[in-house]
Design a protein around this nucleic acid. Structure first.
Lengths: 123, 123
DNA sequence: TATTTATCTTGACACTTGTAGAGATAGCGA
DNA sequence: TCGCTATCTCTACAAGTGTCAAGATAAATA
């Protein structure tokens, strides 16, 4: 199931708010980006058609949607694809970027250390 | 400069082989994917038009291209965009996936540990 | 030199994506 | 009950994307 940039962004909102309606997602999206309700609704429709969202409830005229798969299970192949596409399939290269950028706080690094060591212990 | 999926893939090849020609890139790409020379050349043309590639040499009729920017400098914003789009801007979430998947070897983990610690020391 | 061949250029096309307006209509409040 | 309003549905369109064939032509080779 191939999703476009914007479709991914919208699905993202649903990962954060499972069971959301088009109007509410529109409100959230508009925090970052100026788009009309129609646009967001179209994207939701496409996500539904692609099988990434499903209707799970209805209140009045308002339809509520939810992701059909967990964020984790969708992120996995996306990450893989990204690593292949941008980092020549080399996760270590990605890590390096993560570490070089200031994107990780000291806290993150500590956390990283802990997990990396834990993995080591259990192998 | 926004690049499409396939454009990114092709640019990737140039990061690995700076100064490459359309025919040679075509050969490389066809290892993974069945596409004609024309298709690859079109993508290269578009990358040139977008300013990601430039002509740097010519031998006979064969034109050689090279990336206009370093892999690193292009990867940075791409990674950022990806983290925002798929991981809600949370790099830690990304790391978790990296660690959970078997995408990292023990060797990678050791390496990770070393770097994370080094960063710690210098902060 | 004449011919073959490799490479480039151009044009094309269907599909996807981002974007949104117009119109229908169900439900809520007066 | 009746009109207003929020929400949905439908339709549309320009630009971007993946894909390639046909034709031109320069260079290599016979």
């Amino acid at each position: 199931m191939k999703l476009s940039e914007f479709e991914t962004e919208v699905l993202q909102v649903f990962w954060q708010h499972p069971k959301a309606s088009a109007p509410s997602v529109h409100k959230i999206i508009t925090n970052n980006k100026a788009v009309t309700y129609s646009t967001v609704k179209t994207i939701i429709d496409r996500l539904e058609k692609k099988g990434a969202l499903q209707r799970v409830d209805q209140q009045g005229r308002t339809i509520f949607y939810a992701p059909t798969a967990s964020a984790d299970s969708m992120r996995k192949p996306m990450l893989n694809n990204f690593i292949n596409k941008v980092f020549a399939g080399d996760s270590r290269l990605l890590m390096n970027h993560l570490l070089e950028n200031d994107s990780l706080s000291q806290d993150d690094l500590d956390y990283l250390n802990k997990v990396a060591n834990k993995n080591k212990a259990t192998e």
